[in-house]
Amino acid sequence: MTLLAAFACVFFTALAAWFVFAGDERLPEDSPAAARLRALRERKQAIYDNLRDLHFEFLAGKLAQPDYQRSRQMLETEAARVVREIQRCGEAS
């Protein structure tokens, strides 16, 4: 019984060691430039989502017209800023 347990212990230790050291996967990583570009695109996407959302709330009747106009304008300006930034990054890379 003890012998069996000892065997099992040795076996599992070896198995674990093999598993830990046998791997050779690549790491999921991207270059800083790619990451930055992606982050900007996410930002743009988020702003577009906000715009869709805003539009929907307006259609649902939650917002008065001036509120809607103003917010939409601000979001568009914000999106334009991000788009310019994306263009700059695209040039650089």
Binding site: H55, E76, T77, A80, R81, V83
Partner: peptide
Amino acid sequence: PATAPAAPAGDGDPALARVQAEIARELGDW
């Protein structure tokens, strides 16, 4: 915001114009 220094008026700025067109298309689409 439309006249803020970071974002010059709509027609002068190609990025803003593009965004506005895109948005208009998308919301209209929707």
